[in-house]
Amino acid sequence: MSADAGPAVIVLASGRGERFVASGGRGSKLQALLAGKPVLQHTLEAVRDSGLRWHVEDAGHEGMGDSIAAGVRATRDAGGWLVLPGDLPLVRAESLRSVAAALASHGVVLPMYQGMQGHPVGFAAHCLQDLLLLSGAQGAALVVRAQRMADRALELELQDPGIVADIDTLPDLARAERLLAGR
């Protein structure tokens, strides 16, 4: 697939979920049941429904930066990347498509919901080398900062509370159940 083929969604599924266990959860937060299905399955259904190319990065990397770099390496021929943590089970497929479309004219796309930054964060193809160099826990904050300074970042307001509804604790899981029931 060539770089003009469009962006790929990188689903990050390597985290240890320490806050989930500390809150009383058992096992992986990505396997915790939400409306009878694992959290990660909900996330992947939205990714599949988006129609975008995707890759799950679940090799157990040390930090988010390492996971992002590995996902970009696995899809390096993509025309950009949408970085989506696997613990966002309520994200909507149309939100993924909106971020992908905005990458056509911006270096970084930061999805926003009522003033809060969410996911997936989109990165244009020209960010490839910077993303491949990521390591550690910080993620891609330095890449985002560089794109902001170059005036290539877009804050994209979306009407999707799912972009900010991540599952880090048992109360987060309960909140997601309520939001899902209200859809």
Rank of each mutant, 00 (worst) to 15 (best):
G17T: 00
V11L: 10
D130M: 06
S28L: 09
G139P: 01
L84C: 10
V56G: 05
A124H: 13
V11N: 06
D130Q: 14
R148S: 07
V39G: 03
H126S: 12
V21N: 00
Q147N: 08
P171I: 11
P111N: 05
R152I: 04
V109I: 09
A70F: 11
E18S: 12
V11K: 07
A69W: 02
G6K: 10
L180I: 13
G118A: 01
L96C: 12
S50F: 05
A174V: 11
L12R: 09
S28W: 11
I163D: 13
R152V: 07
D160A: 02
V47N: 02
L158F: 14
R92I: 06
V164F: 12
A165I: 00
H55S: 04
G71F: 09
L179Y: 06
L40F: 10
L12M: 15
M149Y: 00
V56N: 01
V9I: 15
R53K: 10
R175W: 13
I163P: 08
S105V: 05
P111V: 04
E177S: 04
A3V: 01
G24R: 07
D160L: 04
L12F: 12
A32F: 13
L40C: 06
L88V: 12
C127R: 14
A125L: 06
T43K: 03
K37R: 15
A153C: 14
R26Q: 09
L156K: 03
A165C: 14
H126Y: 14
L154T: 11
V39S: 03
A8Q: 04
A59I: 08
E155R: 09
G139S: 03
E45Q: 15
A104M: 01
L103V: 01
M112F: 10
L128T: 05
P85R: 09
Q31A: 15
I10P: 03
M64V: 13
M112Y: 14
D160E: 11
L158T: 07
A140V: 00
H61G: 03
S95G: 15
R73F: 11
R48D: 08
A102L: 04
V121A: 11
A101Y: 03
L30Y: 14
D130W: 07
Q114L: 01
T75N: 04
D168W: 15
L30E: 07
R26L: 13
R183Q: 14
S50D: 00
G107Q: 05
A93T: 10
D66M: 07
V99H: 07
D130L: 07
L170A: 09
V39M: 02
Q117N: 01
M64L: 11
A125F: 06
R175N: 13
V9R: 06
P171H: 12
R16L: 14
G63N: 04
G17V: 00
L82R: 00
E57H: 09
L180Y: 12
G15H: 13
V39A: 01
Q41F: 10
M149Q: 11
L131D: 05
M64R: 05
S23K: 06
I68T: 02
A100Y: 03
G71D: 12
F20D: 02
R178E: 14
G86K: 05
G24F: 15
V99G: 09
G25T: 00
L110A: 06
S28Q: 04
K29C: 13
M1C: 02
A32C: 15
E155C: 10
M64E: 12
A124D: 14
Q41W: 15
T43F: 10
A5N: 03
A46V: 01
M116C: 01
L133G: 10
E57G: 11
A100S: 10
A137T: 00
R145N: 04
